[in-house]
Amino acid sequence: MHLSILSKASVAIACLSLGTSGSPLHQPTSFCSPSYPATGWEIRDIFNQFVDEWVYQRNFSDSAAKYLSPNLIQHNPQIANGSEAMVAAVGPILANYDGPNFSLVVVDEEKGLAVTLNRYVGKPGTGLPIAGVADFYRFDGTCIVEHWDVIESLPPNSTNPDPF
Rank of each mutant, 00 (worst) to 15 (best):
P163A: 02
E109W: 02
I151E: 02
G99K: 11
D135M: 00
Y137R: 07
D98G: 08
Y56N: 14
F31K: 04
P34S: 15
V90K: 01
I13K: 02
G40L: 12
A38F: 06
V121G: 04
V121P: 04
Y56C: 05
V90W: 01
G132C: 08
G22M: 11
Y67T: 08
R138H: 13
V55S: 10
P129E: 13
E146M: 02
P34E: 13
G112T: 09
A88P: 06
S35T: 15
L94V: 00
P124Y: 11
T29Q: 14
L68M: 08
T39M: 04
L117M: 04
H26K: 15
P77N: 05
Y97Q: 08
M1V: 09
L94E: 10
I13F: 05
P161F: 01
V87S: 06
I93E: 12
A88V: 04
F139C: 00
Y137D: 13
S10W: 02
L72T: 07
C15T: 14
D45T: 15
H2E: 14
F50L: 01
L104C: 05
G112P: 10
H2I: 11
A131Q: 15
P92I: 10
V150R: 03
S153I: 10
G127L: 08
N118I: 12
V90H: 04
N96A: 04
D52R: 15
A80M: 08
T142P: 00
M1L: 03
L104G: 00
S33P: 00
V107Q: 02
V150S: 12
S153Q: 13
M1K: 07
I43L: 14
G22R: 04
P70N: 02
G91C: 10
Y36E: 06
C32F: 06
D62Y: 00
